[in-house]
Design a binder for these strands. Structure first.
Lengths: 139, 139
DNA sequence: ATAATTCCTATTAAATTAGTAGGGTTTAAA
DNA sequence: TTTAAACCCTACTAATTTAATAGGAATTAT
């Protein structure tokens, strides 16, 4: 059971953005260098973050990204969700015969995994971007 | 972020075992049929469960597996851990330059993921096998 | 004009997971 | 004493997912 990097990268990048915010747009190149995340990969992530209205972009030279809201208004769940990294504990697809089990009723552990999903999402909902950034302004 | 089936299968199988326990060993063939999990895959899981002393095996004809402890004494964390499905939220390997970031200090999100790991493991520690089984004796 | 930057999609490479295969050992029971 | 059911163990393959790369188009400050 391993959590993947996509959500982690997104949170790191947003924390970087919040941390270095100065009113002017921050370019992905900067973030890429500071956080050691591939520029192209960051671009993909920020497209999604933009679509979810967490950041806005400024195109062209000296462009970059700016947080739409203040770090105190952004929950980690917003970020994670934006990059489609919401937790999936169940593989029970609607159509598939596999998943739960072959029976029509839900398997005994079905609710367990659903609960776990809530538990994890709840963790991310409780934490705001602000809390990450305040711990240490420059990292 | 998707949780894999290994831990889920292990929990399902253990719940099945607890649910159908009657003093005599339960064969993996039975569990395989009831839970729709490949027999060979189950064998791999039960080797690990046995090594962690959660079940004992009875070889030969009419053999199978028996729970070593009562379902009230088995935490889901024991099962998950036994099949090596303990959560890994960090990819910061000791040697690797990748992971956190290239810098020597821990990245700002490092503790976050460590906390998440604890949060998830805590979830499994709180729940006992008994609780799953009692909800519904036959599934 | 030029360079820096976002924007967007497609493809490839790497890693992991899920599942299969095959043969060995043990033991109850016919 | 043969047979079949079951555990035991390792290795391999297939499938899926993730991570990363590639390549260009559009935009804009200088």
């Amino acid at each position: 059971m391993k959590l993947t990097t996509k959500g982690r990268y997104a949170v790191m990048a947003m924390a970087d953005l919040a941390s270095y915010a100065n009113g002017k747009p921050i370019s992905l190149t900067e973030i890429s260098l500071r956080q050691n995340i591939s520029l192209s990969y960051l671009e993909q992530l920020f497209l999604k973050l933009k679509n979810k209205n967490l950041v806005k972009s400024v195109r062209g030279s000296n462009g970059g990204y700016i947080l739409v809201k203040s770090p105190s208004e952004i929950r980690l769940s917003n970020i994670i969700f934006a990059v489609n990294e919401n937790v999936k504990t169940l593989s029970c697809k609607k159509d598939s015969k596999k998943g739960c089990n072959h029976k029509s009723t839900k398997c005994i552990t079905h609710n367990l995994w659903a609960d776990l999903e809530e538990h994890i999402n709840g963790f991310f909902e409780k934490i705001k971007l602000e809390e990450l950034v305040n711990k240490d302004k420059r990292f």
